[in-house]
Design a protein around this nucleic acid. Sequence first.
DNA 1: ACCTGAACACCGTTCAAGT
DNA 2: ACCTGAACACCGTTCAAGT
Lengths: 201, 201
Amino acid sequence: MKDSYHHGDLKSTLIDAGVKLLSESGMEGLSLRKLAREVGVSHNAPYMHFADKEAVLAAIAEQGFLLLGEAIDAGQLQLSDQSIEARLQAAAQSYVNFALNHPDHLMVMFGKLDSAAYPDLIETAHATFNKLVTIMQVGHQSGTLVDQPAEQLAMLFWTNVHGLSALLIAQKIPEYARQKLTNEAITTWSIQMLLTGILRN
Amino acid sequence: MKDSYHHGDLKSTLIDAGVKLLSESGMEGLSLRKLAREVGVSHNAPYMHFADKEAVLAAIAEQGFLLLGEAIDAGQLQLSDQSIEARLQAAAQSYVNFALNHPDHLMVMFGKLDSAAYPDLIETAHATFNKLVTIMQVGHQSGTLVDQPAEQLAMLFWTNVHGLSALLIAQKIPEYARQKLTNEAITTWSIQMLLTGILRN
DNA sequence: ACCTGAACACCGTTCAAGT
DNA sequence: ACCTGAACACCGTTCAAGT
């Protein structure tokens, strides 16, 4: 706050402030001018480091994928057992938990960004995705998973937990469908169904 | 355009214009003032019919759930066979198809709306959800589905197709995970996995 | 190189006024 | 009741100017 001139790392300071603003005031509360004000800098100092607002959002999104990846890793470290079921259940809880704690951040991460224009964002998102692929590969090695490409299984898992997160955030799940289940219980049940299938066998 | 004064149904005219603007210019292109201009009315005539911009978005979202419901119904009418597999595959294709054709509309539908403030929106969304519940109930009657509440199975299906749609729209699925599969093939494969599970049996 | 202030075209919303 | 125009406080972005 003191030397607003030349304070070294305005770029990452702006990103951090953006993440903070996002969790406080939500998506619509995030403006470039407010961001600059927050950091104590003129309203177009950000343009020294970002082409436009979308570029700032892309950087914030990238930060989100990093945090999500860390959350998944943290969950994998405290497993009760090493089975694929336990791994996937832990990863699912990490994902949904992150989503519910940072709904607006998730929105930016999956918003309409010209992703081709932000290679760093793509790379980080893929790195996070790869954590899921790795889990599926472990499942393959132990012979517990169906014989399908690990990448596709990871994608399937991702679509599941992401869709669940989106519906929980948007509160689009009718109460009569929730049956008093907690978010955690719904997540556990969903993964269980994904593992065993919904067809009677 | 002639008698801009008293043209009868400004409310639904605005909603239709909003849906059109959404598919043409995307989310950021949708402003109340532009909407009014498009319809040929003063920039705050919309306030005669809507409390604020969010209320307009809620109405547009509701229209989206109606269209999505119709798309699902249409898909169910041209089934090759009546099995639960065929029904769910058709519903999934309808959903993903709608999502890819109206990505910004879907975003509004699942955006952050104070859903409690828009009971009509909730009701319409639930009505669309109920179409999925009905399909699951049919599955239960034919004894082909696992013994779990139809509402929860519908929710599981919904999270699947919605998550898949979101990831396809955001282009967050790495090419190496797609394996040259078309969107339709990915959808078919995902539902197949959901039906049979990903655990080796 | 890094930052600022003035300026431009837009926005959502409010309000007094018109028919 | 329905619509309008002026006004306010905010945006994102550009540009000439300052250090």
